[in-house]
Design a protein around this nucleic acid. Structure first.
Length: 457
RNA sequence: GUGGUUGUAGCUCAGUUGGUUAGAGCACCAGAUUGUGGUUCUGGGGGUCGCCGGUUCGAGCCCGGUUAGCCACCCCA
C-alpha cells in the first residue's frame, strides 16, 4: 500500500489550528449577528448551469466538475462517449457531468435569493461561512479548498449598507487585534475614467492594469495599457488619474475635476463622499482610505468596492467586497441590488500568526489533568473529575496507571495548566494535591473545595 | 494552463568526483529513578533515499519520465 496523501491544494487542520481558526470565525460570526445578519448554508455542489458563465472564461476553467454516476450502464455508454468528445473540445456536456463544486458563496446566494424571493423579508441580510473549491494551481496563501466568510445584503440600494459593512470590517479587526486600512473606491468612478479616456471597450483592461499599480509600478502599468491597445493620449489621462494623492477630500476634489462632468463619475463621487463622511461620523476612525487605484477583478461589481490591507505585515488583501446591481437577474429575478463583503480566513490566520496575536486560550481546551495512581485512586479521581466538569471545568483522567514521568509529559504536551494527584494518602484524608505546572507550585485542597478552587483561578 | 525549484528516519537536515552495512540533532521507547515532569547519563527501535524506468561491474548521487510540496506568471481569496 502506498503512503496516504491529500489531494493537491487541500489541507488537514489539526486540533491547535482548528481552535485558532474557530476563534477567528467565532469573532466574525458574533459581529455579523450583532449587525442583524442571518446564517445561511448552501450545498457543496450546485448544478453546472448555476455556476457556468458567472465567473468569466477563466473562472469556468477553474470550476471543479463532478463526474456523473452510472456512465457504465449499457444504455449510457454511447451518450457518454459522444459527451466525452465534446469535453475534449472544451465544451461541457450534461451526459458526462451535470454537477460541480461551488466556486464561491455569492452565486449560490444569488441562486438562493432567486429561488426564495417571494418568501424573503427584504432587504435580506445573510452571512455564510463555508468552504469553496477551485481547480487552481496552489501557491502561497492559495488553496484548492478554502473557506469564505461572506456577509451580503440584497434588496436595498441604500448606502447605509456600505457604511455598516465598513464598520463591521473595522469592528472585527479591532477585536482580533489587527491594525487595518479599509480601502474604498467606486466602479462608477472607474467607468467614468474609461469614458473620459474614450476607451469604454477597454474598461476591463484598464481596471486590471491600474489595480496592479502598487505591485508593479507606474511604468509597467503604462506598458500593460499600451500592450492592450491604448493610445499615448489615453494613457496620459489614466496616468493623471492614478497620480491623484492627498486625503479623502483632496482626492475627491481631484476626481471632480477629472471625471466630474460624467454622469457616472458624479454618482460615484457622491457615493464615496457619503460613505466616507458617515463612517467618520459614526466611528471617529481615520482608517477608511479612498484608493482610486483599487479596482478588483470581479466584473459583477457596479458600485462601491472595498478591500482590506493589514498594516505592518507583508500580505495581500485579507478581505474585500462591493456592490452589485443585478446578480439575481442571472436567475430570472431582475432588479435586486446587493452589496457584500468577504473575509479571507486563511490570510487572517497567517497575519495573526505573524503578529503573534492569538490569545492564549486557543492553545488547549483541557484545564486539569487527574493523575491515575491505581484502581481505587483513579475511581476517586473520576468522581471528583465529574464534579469539576459539572462546574464547567474541562478535565481528563490519565487513561492508565503509568509512571509519573509519563503523566507529566502528557500534560506538558497538551499544555494542560494543572494536574491533580489523588493517591492513597490523599484518599484517606479526602484531599487532593493540586499542582500548577507553569509555576511548579503545589498545594493540598479538600475534595469539597476543588470546584471552587478551579473556578476562582 | 505556463515556468522555476525541492523531495533522504515521526520532524529539521547532512551525505565528498558514482564505491563496503546511508548519518546527525530533536522526538519516541527502555533503564539509572515503584509518589513529583522539564536537567543529565546509558542503551534501543525506527529508511523501498517520493515513484517508475535507463546508463553503469556498481546509483541517495548521473539521465529520462512521473507524482507531490513550495515559489512565480495568468487569474484570484
Amino acid at each position: 500500500m502506498s503512503k496516504p496523501s491529500l489531494p493537491q491544494g487541500t489541507r488537514d487542520f489539526g486540533p491547535v489550528v482548528v481552535r485558532k481558526r474557530n476563534y477567528i470565525l467565532q469573532t466574525i460570526r458574533t459581529v455579523f449577528e450583532l449587525y442583524g445578519y442571518e446564517p445561511l448554508e448552501t450545498p457543496a455542489m450546485e448544478n453546472m448551469e448555476t455556476l457556468l458563465g458567472k465567473y468569466g472564461d477563466e473562472g469556468d476553467k477553474l470550476i471543479f466538475k463532478i463526474l456523473n454516476n452510472g456512465l457504465s450502464d449499457a444504455k449510457n455508454i454511447e451518450k457518454g462517449k459522444a459527451a466525452f468528445e465534446n469535453v475534449l473540445l472544451g465544451k461541457n456536456d450534461k451526459n458526462l457531468t451535470e454537477r460541480a463544486l461551488r466556486y464561491d458563496l455569492t452565486i449560490p446566494f444569488a441562486r438562493y435569493v432567486a429561488m426564495n424571493y417571494g418568501q424573503l423579508a427584504l432587504p435580506f441580510k445573510r452571512y455564510q461561512i463555508q468552504p469553496v473549491w477551485r481547480a487552481d494551481r496552489p501557491q502561497k496563501g492559495r488553496y484548492r479548498e478554502f473557506y469564505q466568510c461572506d456577509a451580503d445584503v440584497v434588496g436595498s440600494k441604500s448606502l447605509i449598507n456600505e457604511v455598516e459593512l465598513c464598520i463591521i470590517y473595522a469592528t472585527v479587526f479591532e477585536q482580533l487585534g489587527i491594525d487595518v486600512t479599509i480601502k474604498i473606491n467606486n466602479r462608477k468612478v472607474l467607468a467614468a475614467l474609461a469614458d473620459v479616456t474614450e476607451a469604454n471597450d477597454k474598461f476591463t483592461a484598464i481596471t486590471v492594469a491600474i489595480d496592479k499599480l502598487d505591485k508593479i509600478g507606474i511604468d509597467k502599468v503604462k506598458e500593460e495599457l499600451a500592450a492592450n491597445g491604448l493610445q499615448d493620449k489615453q494613457i496620459a489621462v489614466i496616468e493623471k488619474y492614478i497620480s491623484i494623492t492627498g486625503n479623502v477630500s483632496e482626492k475627491l476634489q481631484a476626481l471632480q475635476i477629472l471625471i466630474g462632468q460624467s454622469e457616472s463619475g458624479k454618482a460615484g463621487i457622491e457615493a464615496l463622499q457619503y460613505v466616507t463622511d458617515s463612517y467618520l461620523q459614526y466611528t471617529g476612525k481615520q482608517n477608511l482610505e479612498l484608493d482610486t487605484t483599487l479596482a478588483r477583478g470581479l466584473n459583477y461589481y457596479t458600485g462601491c468596492i472595498l478591500e482590506i490591507k493589514a498594516n505592518g505585515v507583508q500580505m495581500g488583501s485579507i478581505g474585500g467586497g462591493g456592490r452589485y446591481d443585478d446578480l439575481t437577474g442571472l436567475f430570472g429575478v431582475p432588479n435586486v441590488p446587493g452589496v457584500g463583503i468577504s473575509f479571507g480566513v486563511d490570510r487572517i490566520y497567517d497575519v495573526l500568526e505573524e503578529l503573534n496575536a492569538f490569545p492564549a486560550f486557543t492553545n488547549s481546551s483541557t484545564q486539569v489533568l487527574f493523575f491515575n495512581l491505581g484502581l481505587q485512586e483513579s475511581s476517586a479521581a473520576f468522581t471528583q473529575m465529574q464534579l469539576l466538569r459539572k462546574s464547567g471545568i474541562s478535565c481528563e483522567l490519565y487513561h492508565e496507571n503509568a509512571k509519573f514521568d509519563k503523566q507529566f509529559k502528557y500534560a506538558e504536551k497538551k499544555q494542560i495548566g494543572h494536574i491533580v494527584i489523588i493517591g492513597t494518602k490523599e484518599l484517606e484524608q479526602n484531599v487532593a494535591n493540586v499542582k500548577n505546572l507553569t509555576s511548579g507550585k503545589q498545594q493540598t485542597v479538600p475534595f469539597s473545595e476543588l470546584a471552587t478552587y478551579f473556578s476562582n483561578l
